[in-house]
Every structure is written in C-alpha cells, then in structure tokens.
Amino acid sequence: MVEQASRAQFVTFLEKEGLRIDSLIEGAVELAEEVHSGLVREDGKSLFLETHTWPVAMDMVRHYKASGRSITGVEVASAILHDVMEDDERILNLYNAKSYGFDAYLRYRFGSRVHKIASELKIKPLENFPGATAEDKVRARFWDYCDLLWKADYDVKAIKLADRLNNMDFISKVAGHPKWKRYVREAEDFYLAYTMIPPKMPEYYKSMRSSYEELKSLVKVVTV
C-alpha cells in the first residue's frame, strides 16, 4: 500500500520524531505546496504532495533515526524540496524570486546545502543527451544520473532511494503502466547494487528488492 499523508499529518509525524518545526522546515513545506499544488500522479487522481513529497521525507527521517544518524532541518528541508527544481517554471513572484531566478532564490532562502541537493537530484532535459533515438537518449541520461548518484553524499543517496522506492511502489498500483519495465531494468542495472555500495543502506536494499520483485512479477504477467 502506498503511504499517504496530509500536511498536518506530516508535521505531526516530524514532531513525534522529536524534530523542531523551524523556519527552514516551515519554508520548505510552504514552497513545496506552492510548486506542487494540484499536481497529480500517473493515475490521474492521487495528489503528488500527499503520496510523494511528504511520504518521501517521512521515509528519509525514519531511515536516519533507524541508522542512529543525527538529522536537522537541513536534511528534512532537502527531502521536502527534492523535486522542486523539476517544477520551477510554476514559481511566480514568490519572495521576489522572479526578479533573479528560482535557482538563486532557492540558494538564498534555504542555503547552499539544500540548493546543492535539489540541484543534484534534478533530472536533466532529454535533449541534453546524445542518441539517435529517444530510447538512446533515455539510456544516456540514466548512465549520467548513475554517475552522479555513485559519488553523491549520504543525504542525497538516502533521499534518492526513498524517492525511487516511493515511485516504484506507486507505479505498481497503476495497471499496465509503461514505467514498470523501466523501473525493473533500472533496479537491475543500478539501484539494487546502489543500496549496498558504501555507505551501505541494507534496509533500503530489503525494500528495493521487495518493490523490484513485485514489479518484475507484474511485467511477466503482462508479457506472457
């Protein structure tokens, strides 16, 4: 079952985990709502904020707590904002962002660390990559992204794995979606091994393996 949470439930979760809702987290929540408001997922009805943004951040917090790692508003804000660079064209005149660009606004408002994570996790446009066909370009982009993740810091890795797991679990509930095959292939090519490359994240390996096996079984049913 795909996790869902409202803004209020998300904030309550953070408080129960002993996190103070500081200005950084409050600002990240507000910006995420501004950017992703009304956005729905592949099923055409599930709200992105409630089924992705808040759940991914919650999963990342659980991971940090289970791993005994300290977590601050910087990590939480980074998880909340991990997708905002994808939708930055939706930002209008928020805190004068329009006058000098959303990228600069993000750095100014949330600091260089949050900005760096959001920038690293952004998927680059397909036209930036070589290839005779769209499939070639998709493959080249994936390889480039793998290179980035391979060298990424701990917080980037944890957020990306939480993000990918959420996407895999959600798409498995959307009948016959074409992303099934791509997610299976990318798990085999990279994400399963990625969980065990130092710094190892064995609990994410277990979740990734489970999500992968479910999607793989669905692909087999469709192709039989």
Rank of each mutant, 00 (worst) to 15 (best):
T12N: 01
P202V: 06
F48H: 15
V11L: 05
V74E: 14
R90A: 11
V61F: 05
D155G: 08
E186L: 08
R141N: 11
E50P: 09
L215G: 04
T195S: 10
R139M: 06
G27P: 07
L165Y: 13
F13H: 07
L92F: 00
N166C: 14
A77T: 07
S6E: 04
Y95V: 11
V222E: 14
T223P: 00
A77M: 07
K160G: 02
W150R: 15
V11G: 02
L161R: 05
S46L: 07
D83H: 09
K179G: 02
L126V: 05
T53Y: 05
V174F: 04
E89K: 12
M58A: 08
T53P: 04
Y105S: 04
G101T: 04
L92P: 00
S37D: 14
L24Y: 03
S210W: 00
S172T: 07
R69F: 13
G68A: 12
K122W: 01
M85C: 10
M1I: 09
R62D: 07
L14C: 07
F129G: 05
A187E: 05
S37C: 13
A118L: 07
L92R: 13
L126M: 06
E203I: 11
K137Q: 12
E135I: 09
K160F: 13
H52M: 09
P178L: 06
F10G: 06
E30I: 12
K220S: 15
E188A: 09
T12W: 00
L215I: 08
P202A: 08
L24T: 11
V222K: 13
K137L: 06
S70L: 13
L121M: 05
V56F: 08
T51N: 13
T12V: 01
D43G: 11
A28H: 04
E89F: 14
N93A: 12
M201G: 05
V224K: 15
A104C: 06
T12E: 10
L121K: 03
K179L: 15
Y95A: 13
L81S: 03
R141H: 03
M58W: 01
Y145W: 06
F102A: 07
W150V: 15
F170Y: 14
G176A: 11
S210C: 08
A79P: 04
I71W: 08
V40W: 00
R141T: 00
L94W: 15
G44Y: 07
S46R: 03
V138L: 12
T12F: 00
Y154E: 15
H115L: 02
E50S: 12
D43N: 14
P130I: 10
P198G: 10
R20L: 14
R69E: 13
F190M: 11
P178M: 01
E135Q: 12
H177I: 02
S6D: 04
E135D: 13
R113L: 10
L121H: 03
P125N: 01
R182M: 11
K65V: 12
L92I: 04
A140D: 04
E186W: 10
A187K: 02
F170T: 03
M201T: 03
D87Q: 09
S70F: 01
K122L: 07
A57V: 01
V224T: 14
A5K: 11
K220M: 13
V114H: 06
E186M: 12
